[in-house]
Amino acid sequence: MVSNIKSKYAANELNLNKAKFKHNIIALAIWSTALLTVSLPLMMLWTIGVEGFPQLSLQFLLTEPTHAGRSGGILPMLISTLWILCICLVTVVPIGLGCALYLSECVTADSTIGRIVGLSLDVLSGVPSIVFGLFGYAVFAIQLGLGFSILSGGLSLACMVLPLFIRTTEQALRACPTAYRRAAEALDLSLFAFVARILLPSAASNIAIAFIISTGRALAETAVLIFTAGYVTRIPSHWSDSGRALSVHIYDLSMNVPGGQPNAAATAVVLMLLIIVINLVAHRLSKRWQLLE
């Protein structure tokens, strides 16, 4: 009798041990998969760093390319990239901010117009970048006669970045406490006064993060720019000039210029450093502002 109970306990113990073993195996599998998923891309960055860093110098950043980019620097690309980014963001910020304000303050998320605008933004953010390139080419370069230019490239890029900026900004605005809205309503403030004095200042930090994230996305983009901003490696003197962005330069050097790979790697390092800095700034800002609140 007693021995019977004992053996039952023993069996239970064995089951428990078995279960424990199973769960340990699962945990191990999950840890190793997780490590694999980050280590492979990190190794990729490492490889590019090793390839690119030796070419990197102040000289590289401040001179024009020679021999189709095989030697020389990337000054024109840096300047073109900056121009394109500026045009893109100058377009995106006012329109995006207005749209985000409209979505968060003037309509509810489940109203017809809110749903239509929301769905079309979601769809827009899923459109392949090459299609934005085609669109930008057909409309800005050809239809509006802007040609292959920084303006065409910046505007096409703006169309692509717009939904991202609107959605992140809208989230920032919706995070504003409803108590403020109710107080403003009871005091009969106008929407404009509420937006200007209460809403935007209280959401400013998160809007800044939205801005930085959008900058990162714009900086990373290539396919849109190939046949809108063009290929030219001169320093642009006007926004109607063609200009080659950093990412396009990497593509061109590695695919079309035999022997261009070392400089492509160095340019990739520059681009990657820019992206990392942008990421860190966004991260740091969001952390600091969370602490303040």
Binding site: I48, Y251, A268, I278
Partner: peptide, 11 residues
């Protein structure tokens, strides 16, 4: 990693 430009993956 989500923000790495696609051209860098390609490279």
């Amino acid at each position: 990693l989500a923000g790495i430009p696609s051209v860098i993956f390609g490279f």
